[in-house]
């Protein structure tokens, strides 16, 4: 199980392929990629800065990963999250889950993203057409996390 928090870019396709490599027991791989959009909440977004809490970030992600492994029979799970300056179109986050059958992979991927959105210490600051602004947490994310 892998957790990476990094400033550099990554290739989602390569991450997805690597999940399956050298394990022919894997029958299903589910991947989620989150991207920076160029428009949010009524404003054009020229870029963003992702702040985090070094130390806690890795611990919080590890805790989520362990919980997913306890709930579903997973063969591999990778969480990769970028920090620092990002431009529209760039991937921010990758969650890849491998299991023998699809249901566990689909559900675990959904779970990890819901928990990451509400429990991992990341904060987005957008550079918009009307100046910088901190992205506010959404109630819909909290509601989604409560499903589990």
């Amino acid at each position: 199980m892998a957790i990476r928090v990094q400033a550099g870019a990554f290739d989602p396709g390569a991450e997805l392929n690597a999940l399956h490599a050298a394990n022919v027991g894997i029958g299903a791989v589910v991947g989620f990629v989150g991207y920076v959009r160029d428009f949010n909440d009524g404003r054009e977004v020229a870029g963003m800065f992702l702040e985090h809490y070094p130390g806690m970030t890795e611990k919080a992600l590890a805790k989520i990963v362990v919980e997913a492994e306890q709930r579903w029979p997973l063969l591999r799970l990778e969480v990769l999250h970028r920090v620092g300056a990002l431009e529209p179109g760039e991937p921010i986050v990758f969650v890849g889950v491998a299991s023998a059958h699809r249901q566990a992979a689909f559900e675990a991927c959904d779970f990890v993203m819901d928990y990451l959105k509400t429990r991992a210490p990341f904060w987005k600051k957008e550079h918009t057409s009307e100046g910088p602004r901190w992205v506010e947490g959404r109630q819909s994310d909290k509601d989604a996390a409560r499903r589990w």
Partner: peptide, 10 residues
């Protein structure tokens, strides 16, 4: 101890 606003990663 840390204080912070609602997290917004992902």
């Amino acid at each position: 101890v840390a204080f912070f606003p609602t997290v917004t990663g992902g």
